[in-house]
Nucleic acid binder design. Sequence first.
DNA 1: CTGCAACTTCAAGTCGGCTTGAAGTCAAGC
DNA 2: GCTTGACTTCAAGCCGACTTGAAGTTGCAG
Lengths: 151, 151
Amino acid sequence: MDGALLDIGQVARDSGLTTSTLRYYEDRGLIRPAGRHGLRRVYEPSVLRQLALIVLARQTGFGLDEIAGLLQATPADADLRARLAAKADELDAALARLTLMRDNLRHAAGCGHPRLADCPHLNTAVESTLPLGEQADLDRPAFPGFPASRA
Amino acid sequence: MDGALLDIGQVARDSGLTTSTLRYYEDRGLIRPAGRHGLRRVYEPSVLRQLALIVLARQTGFGLDEIAGLLQATPADADLRARLAAKADELDAALARLTLMRDNLRHAAGCGHPRLADCPHLNTAVESTLPLGEQADLDRPAFPGFPASRA
DNA sequence: CTGCAACTTCAAGTCGGCTTGAAGTCAAGC
DNA sequence: GCTTGACTTCAAGCCGACTTGAAGTTGCAG
């Protein structure tokens, strides 16, 4: 398809991931080198697209096993479709939470309250997420997405 | 403002968190009991609102230290406002990613491709997230992990 | 040919966010 | 007044996602 195979360092540079992460992803079954040049892995450029998808999925809160599963995805797998759709629904829920939180933050950044906990606007908003009372499956999907300090 | 103090078990039930999590949050400076009855912690009901906010923030990808910081939030802190606004912007970015991923999933659930990696629609979409290409972007050493929810 | 930066493997370490376990305290219902 | 079960502390463990370190190999510029 095209001559240019990439070595791991190049893939690392192009993807923004580290070489150790790439090897780790390989261990976990997310990517596979096209082959080896001696001992060294060589990759097809298409791995970059795949990595972009992986990174997006990670940022969206998918675990590595989950991503590996999605990537493997056997043919005409009806079950798969269902799982994808379910995932999409989870993301909708996450989107709603995220939006609420963002709006809260924006409001908080603007309103004059000393402590977040004291802002009535925000509290009112948060209360709407309080169906807690009974049983709360708090193991909802979370997801990340921040630089949040890589210290 | 009201007589009913709650014990830790009650708070756990009402918030959906475990007692160990509540103690842990206290350790980490996120909540504080109103006092003790003997050795035992007693809480004001308002802690439930606070916990709801904490849970929302966690689900939104905030780390505990970060949340503690936001909750402490000293008066008229101009810096704080800036950080809140910055956070909100981060959330916007996260929202965009999440939305993209959701749309991808929905599409993938519907289109007939055996492997996700083979769907051109999805690949096209993902490629738009590929600012990768050029520089190594040293300061983006991958992404923080996150809870991923217990089994 | 040589030197060395970039690769290789494998094991162990790190970090965040909790959970679990051992061992003890205590308020209250019988 | 005794039992019981919910509480207490503290230390250690666990999981996911990587990172780090040690020790060895190798392609290629000079």
